Computed example of a mutant assay.
Amino acid sequence: MTSPSAAAPDTRPLGASERRGPEFEGTVTVLSRQTVAEGVVSLELAPNSGDDELLPPWQPGAHIDVVLPTGVTRQYSLCGPVDTAGHSDRWRVAVLWEPDGRGGSQWIHDRVREGDELQVRGPRNNFPLRPAARYLFVGGGIGITPLLPMIAEAEAAGAEWSLLYGGRTHGSMAFLPELEGYGERVAVRPQDQYGLLDLAGFLGDPDPSALVYCCGPAGLIDAVEAYCAGWPSGSLNVERFAAAAAPGTADGAAEQPIEVELRASGMTLTVPPELSVLAAVEQAGVPVLSSCEEGICGSCETPVLDGEVDHRDSLLTEDERAANDTMLICVSRARGGRLVLDL
């Protein structure tokens, strides 16, 4: 990241190639497993195909997919130190036990131990840290994970920054020892002691030189989005662990079949209302990456060559949606009834 300045922060939209970057797909070994808070374990991962094997470089905000033997794929933010020299020999992720989830976190908590192997792919970055003179970080619960390397990067760049970190209780908040060295720039606010986070007191008035980064529960992200509605476009950057409420059709009418041309494959599909574009493409035998199928991870992001997209994801920014050159085919459809995709 370049050194901070008083100039306006970088708020350019990302392209699909920027999100993905160089990817690794293979097996890693769990070097260590540590309990870092109530219900949270951290895993340190390393490639297991030889001593000379290295993992791809990554930047703050990146996540990896963990493909479990059960067939479930889950995304976890990389939260260890960034190797500025390039490739690294290990990754760190943290996993929150979610008893009401779909079984991925429970499987990891119950089964994964030091020395075990995991199938992973990535990294992918939907939440990049842009150059800015000032950063305001807001983390809730396990949402602290992508912010840890961002804070280290901002500190190394000499930027002004502060963190507001909330959780249910002090004991449920991960990585507190790592944050202690930053002193008063870090405000730790467990809810059982302080109540809801004081967003107004922390964020203050709109600052055109600042970027806001928020990750955590949906309620927290919704509150930060509402508070920052009057900030300059692109000031707020969020990453969700669950999809926002899905919108209906663009005009409120009943869902209709759409036609999707796969230009590179030389075929045209009719996608019925009950089927996603992703499912139709997979049924046609065209290979495409996918994972969450909720419009939040970016795995299935696909270039759009023609047609108007009805965006229904929780990932793309308003500027990225307006550009109309990419879509998440797991949830989004066509406004005009036809799309041409680079597949």
Rank of each mutant, 00 (worst) to 15 (best):
residue 143 G to D: 08
residue 144 I to V: 14
residue 145 T to H: 06
residue 146 P to E: 04
residue 147 L to N: 06
residue 148 L to F: 03
residue 150 M to R: 01
residue 151 I to L: 14
residue 151 I to D: 09
residue 151 I to V: 14
residue 152 A to I: 09
residue 152 A to E: 15
residue 152 A to V: 07
residue 153 E to L: 05
residue 153 E to D: 14
residue 154 A to W: 09
residue 154 A to D: 06
residue 157 A to S: 15
residue 157 A to D: 10
residue 159 A to Y: 11
residue 159 A to S: 15
residue 159 A to L: 11
residue 160 E to K: 13
residue 160 E to W: 01
residue 162 S to W: 09
residue 163 L to W: 00
residue 163 L to H: 01
residue 164 L to K: 02
residue 164 L to S: 02
residue 164 L to Q: 01
residue 164 L to P: 02
residue 165 Y to S: 05
residue 165 Y to E: 05
residue 165 Y to W: 00
residue 166 G to Y: 04
residue 166 G to L: 08
residue 167 G to R: 00
residue 167 G to P: 00
residue 167 G to D: 01
residue 168 R to V: 09
residue 168 R to E: 14
residue 169 T to F: 12
residue 170 H to D: 13
residue 171 G to M: 10
residue 171 G to H: 12
residue 172 S to G: 15
residue 172 S to N: 02
residue 172 S to Y: 01
residue 172 S to D: 10
residue 172 S to I: 02
residue 173 M to Y: 08
residue 174 A to G: 06
residue 176 L to H: 06
residue 177 P to S: 04
residue 178 E to M: 10
residue 178 E to P: 03
residue 180 E to H: 12
residue 180 E to Y: 00
residue 181 G to R: 15
residue 182 Y to N: 03
residue 183 G to W: 07
residue 185 R to Y: 00
residue 185 R to T: 02
residue 186 V to T: 05
residue 186 V to P: 04
residue 187 A to Q: 15
residue 187 A to L: 14
residue 188 V to Y: 05
residue 188 V to R: 10
residue 188 V to G: 03
residue 188 V to K: 05
residue 189 R to H: 07
residue 189 R to K: 13
residue 189 R to E: 11
residue 190 P to D: 08
residue 191 Q to E: 15
residue 192 D to K: 05
residue 192 D to L: 05
residue 192 D to V: 13
residue 193 Q to V: 10
residue 193 Q to G: 01
residue 193 Q to K: 14
residue 195 G to A: 06
residue 195 G to V: 08
residue 196 L to I: 04
residue 197 L to K: 01
residue 198 D to F: 04
residue 198 D to C: 04
residue 199 L to T: 01
residue 200 A to I: 13
residue 201 G to W: 11
residue 202 F to S: 07
residue 203 L to A: 04
residue 207 D to E: 08
residue 207 D to M: 09
residue 208 P to H: 09
residue 209 S to P: 01
residue 210 A to P: 12
residue 210 A to K: 13
residue 210 A to C: 03
residue 211 L to P: 08
residue 212 V to L: 12
residue 213 Y to W: 04
residue 213 Y to C: 12
residue 214 C to V: 13
residue 215 C to R: 00
residue 215 C to V: 11
residue 215 C to I: 11
residue 217 P to V: 07
residue 217 P to T: 10
residue 218 A to K: 14
residue 219 G to K: 13
residue 219 G to Y: 10
residue 220 L to H: 08
